[in-house]
């Protein structure tokens, strides 16, 4: 899933400076699951903004709404009536949702209330861990199902760097959260699978043109296009 974190309240206030009519727009998909931008969080942010405005003696007409998915036209259509009433929308969806909102309602000022940070998985309750960088050329088939692109701090393709120690990545410092060394994990997994010969295989330089280095990507499925 896509994960995001709410921006600091101060930054949100700065973005909304001078605005008198604001709609907070949540999304019921990824950002709701990661407890950042679902309907409940949208309601909370709207309430906080309202209280702050009252404290500051400002007038602020603020309300909230939530889309089932902010990144799809049909679900944006479903909330259009409400959106139309506000000149400013502060979105709690991921970066994709925020941009979809801005594109669907071009006359509105659409602002971000969250920082979209990764494609992660809920490791345990309230902990998400990055798992994929959408590199466009997946190597999980030769790395024991562990992504070296984002789980190795240096995106190494051919084994651990010299800093791997006690199962931890060199980026793990004293008093920092422990980061497992992806290559220790890959090493252990391939051996457990009896595929240790893969450790000796040289994976050639990555084709980054399939990632964002090749420019923004577009995916077209011709066979699924309406005729």
């Amino acid at each position: 899933m896509i994960t995001a974190e709410r921006k600091p309240f101060e930054e949100i206030l700065e973005l909304l400076e001078g605005k008198e009519k604001v709609l907070v727009a949540g999304c019921e998909t990824c950002v709701a699951v990661c407890l950042t931008g679902g309907e409940k969080e949208a309601e909370i942010l709207a309430a906080e903004l309202s209280i702050k405005a009252k404290e500051d003696g400002r007038t602020l007409d603020v309300d909230h709404i939530s889309a089932i998915r902010q990144c799809e036209w049909e679900y944006l259509d479903a909330i259009a009536e409400k959106v139309e009433q506000y000149p400013v929308v502060i979105s709690m969806a991921c970066g994709i949702g925020i941009q979809s909102m801005a594109e669907r309602f071009p006359e509105k000022l659409v602002l971000p209330a969250v920082n979209t940070n990764m494609l992660g998985m809920p490791q345990e309750h309230a902990v998400w861990i990055e798992r994929c960088g959408a590199c466009g050329d997946c190597v999980l088939g030769v790395t024991g199902g562990i992504c070296p692109i984002v789980r190795c701090s240096k995106s190494l393709l051919n084994g651990p760097c010299g800093g791997s120690h006690d199962g931890l990545c060199e980026v793990t410092g004293p008093n920092k959260e422990e980061i497992p060394c992806a290559w220790q994990l890959i090493h252990d997994k391939l051996i457990a699978q009896g595929r240790q010969d893969l450790l000796m295989k040289v994976t050639p330089p990555k084709d980054w043109s399939k990632s964002n280095s090749g420019g923004p990507r577009t995916m077209v499925k011709e066979e699924a296009k309406p005729v």
């Binding site: 084994g159 760097c161 330089p205």
Partner: peptide
């Protein structure tokens, strides 16, 4: 060399390149 991670240095907010690794 691979190089020490960028977070150890004096520009920890820079983008580490790691286009290819030391074997390649």
């Amino acid at each position: 060399l691979t190089g020490d991670h960028i977070s150890f240095g004096n520009h920890p907010t820079a983008k580490g390149v790691h286009d290819i690794d030391s074997v390649n």
